[in-house]
Amino acid sequence: MQKKEIRKSYKFAIKTALYITMVLTVLIIVFSLLTKSFNIWAILGFSVISYIISFFIIQYRVERFIYRRVKKIYDDLTLLESASLRTQPITTDMATLTQEIGKFAQDKKLEIETLKVREEYRKEFLGNISHELKTPLFTVQGYVLTLLDGAMDNENLREKYLERANKGVERLIYIVQDLDMITKLEVGDLSLNIEPFDIVAVVESVFDLLEMKSAKKKITLTFDMQYPNPIMVKADKERIRQVLTNLVVNSIKYGRIKGTTEISIENLIKNKVIVRVTDNGEGIAKANIPRLFERFYRIDKSGSRKEGGSGLGLSIVKHIIEAHDEKIYIESELSVGSEFSFTLEKVK
């Protein structure tokens, strides 16, 4: 940031010296008239000398007075480095100081507002993660306590309750693994295995994997057109498979019965392709879109977890794409559907 020039002002000393000189001149004229020793040249000489002496004394004293206080303010507020203050003329311009303090106050106000937003996010995040963790924990605890209370003597109940408790543990492990992955992606500890691969084949494998899940809601998984030739891209194949899986699962989860999830692969620019995942599901309100990639953020505030998942899928998608130095986009209209798209580098 360019340092603001600190101007040296003589206005205060000039005016004050002039006032003092005028007062002294009036007094000396009155004294001369009373003593009948009036001499115009002596009075003019006295006025000039008084003005010069007053000016230098006032300027020096004001500089020293303001310098000590201004420097303390600068040091306290860290507006300027002490070194830069020493190397520049000492200011007696209060407008400069006022402007600097005003800017400092504005910056601090913005900082406080940012901290408030972060605090709200932190509270919401902790509330969400506690909700996500306590549901499977209480499930496991409930079945274990029931078994300890005597249900373990019933062979059928024992097996059923242990299986349900195991599902609760698996859900906990799934949440913790997803959190661990996001943390590694954020700090850059998760290494990417960049290699060329056919994105069409990866999409087909995702369709095969989720065929039964989509069949339950009679949702059709399809390409927008036939892709007879491979489309080679350069990325981490397994991470991109995870991105596509999360996006398609999301479209099935919130898709309408007998709906469609369509994937298209288009050339964006010379060395980029864009992959689009489009559905005709319930869509997303504009107010929710900016927060869609936050951890555990739920559009449905009812707390329902009937669809399962860790609540981290879209956050993982965003972090994986950004780890590739690529972009992810979303377009959605309530009751019409959503489109998630992301870019990938093409193999030359």
Rank of each mutant, 00 (worst) to 15 (best):
I28T: 12
S304M: 08
A105H: 14
M152R: 06
K318G: 01
L190E: 05
M212A: 03
Q99T: 15
I328P: 00
Q141R: 11
I57K: 04
E262L: 09
R298W: 08
P228Q: 05
I320P: 00
K108D: 08
E5Y: 13
T146W: 06
M181D: 10
Q2W: 14
K36G: 07
T98S: 13
A201Y: 15
P196Y: 06
L133E: 02
A105P: 06
I173M: 06
M181K: 09
S82F: 10
Q242T: 14
K160T: 07
I90Y: 07
T16E: 06
Y254H: 11
L179Y: 05
V30W: 08
G308W: 03
R158L: 14
L179N: 05
K134A: 12
S32R: 04
N267S: 12
S332N: 06
E204L: 13
L334R: 12
R298I: 09
A287V: 10
S130R: 09
E119H: 06
S191R: 13
V30I: 11
D178H: 06
T135K: 10
I219F: 02
Y143K: 04
Q177I: 15
K11Q: 12
V248N: 00
T245G: 02
F65W: 15
V206N: 00
D149I: 05
T261I: 11
L145G: 07
M22A: 13
Y60S: 15
Y254G: 02
G150P: 03
V62S: 04
K234D: 11
A83L: 13
K103M: 09
V144G: 02
E322L: 02
N288E: 11
Y174A: 09
T222D: 11
I20K: 01
D325N: 11
L157N: 08
P89G: 02
I49A: 12
V277F: 04
M212T: 10
V206E: 00
R64C: 14
I257E: 12
S50H: 08
A285V: 11
M212D: 08
S304I: 04
E119Y: 05
N246D: 10
V117N: 11
T183H: 13
E100F: 04
T96H: 01
A42N: 07
R295N: 14
